[in-house]
Computed example of a mutant assay.
Amino acid sequence: MTNAQKFLDIYNELDQSFAKALGQIKYELFSSRVRQLVLRIPVVRRYKDDLHQLGNLRNAIVHQSIKGKAIAEPYDETVSLLQRILAEY
């Protein structure tokens, strides 16, 4: 499994957890969820800037490609950061 796939799996799990915490059923932007949860959840507040950047990375992986290949492949450290945020959440 590539780091991009690991990243997306963890990201999606975190995004679903954020939606559940907000009682959301319909789609909402990840960045909007982060902005809402910053007010309520200390770990989101602590990682707010990282979460916004990780959202941008997710968009690059999912929406930008060259000949079917994602334009970004997260470093191991980036995947670990996202795992740490999910674990602390």
Rank of each mutant, 00 (worst) to 15 (best):
Val38Arg: 09
Ala87Tyr: 05
Ile41Thr: 11
Glu77Tyr: 04
Tyr11Glu: 04
Tyr27Lys: 07
Phe30Trp: 10
Arg35His: 08
Gln53Phe: 04
Glu73Met: 04
Tyr27His: 12
Leu14Gln: 04
Arg45Thr: 15
Arg46Phe: 11
Leu29Ser: 12
Val62Gly: 06
Ala70Cys: 14
Glu28Asn: 04
Gln16Thr: 08
Leu57Ile: 14
Gly23Cys: 05
Thr78Asp: 07
Val43Ile: 13
Pro42Phe: 07
Tyr75Arg: 11
Val44Phe: 01
Gln5Met: 01
Lys20His: 06
Gly55Glu: 06
Gln16Trp: 02
Tyr27Glu: 08
Lys67Ala: 15
Tyr75Thr: 14
His52Asp: 14
Lys26Trp: 11
Tyr75Ala: 15
Leu54Arg: 05
Pro42Val: 09
Leu86Cys: 09
Tyr27Ala: 10
Val79Asp: 01
Gly68Asn: 12
Leu51Ala: 06
Tyr89Asn: 12
Ala72Asp: 10
Pro74Ala: 11
Pro42Ala: 12
Asp49Lys: 05
Ile41Gln: 11
Leu81Asn: 00
Leu86Ser: 13
Leu82Asn: 08
Ile66Lys: 07
Ala70Glu: 15
Ile85Pro: 09
Glu88Ser: 14
Met1Val: 04
Glu77Thr: 15
Phe30Ile: 08
Leu39Tyr: 02
Val34Gln: 10
Ala87His: 09
His52Gly: 10
Arg58Gln: 09
Leu22Ser: 10
Arg33Met: 15
Ile85Asp: 00
Arg45Ala: 15
Ala87Gly: 09
Asp76Trp: 01
Met1Asn: 04
Thr78Tyr: 00
Val79Trp: 00
Gly23Thr: 09
Asp49Ile: 02
Ile71Glu: 11
Val62Ile: 15
Gln16Tyr: 02
Arg33Ile: 09
Phe18Thr: 12
Ala72Thr: 08
Val38Met: 13
Ser17Phe: 00
His52Met: 15
Glu88Thr: 13
Phe30Val: 10
Tyr27Arg: 07
Asp49His: 02
Ile71Thr: 15
Ala21Val: 06
Tyr75Ile: 06
Asn3Ile: 02
Leu39Ile: 07
Ile41Leu: 10
Ile85Ser: 01
Leu14Lys: 00
Gln24Gly: 07
Met1Asp: 05
Thr2Cys: 01
Gly68Leu: 10
Asp50Tyr: 03
Met1Cys: 03
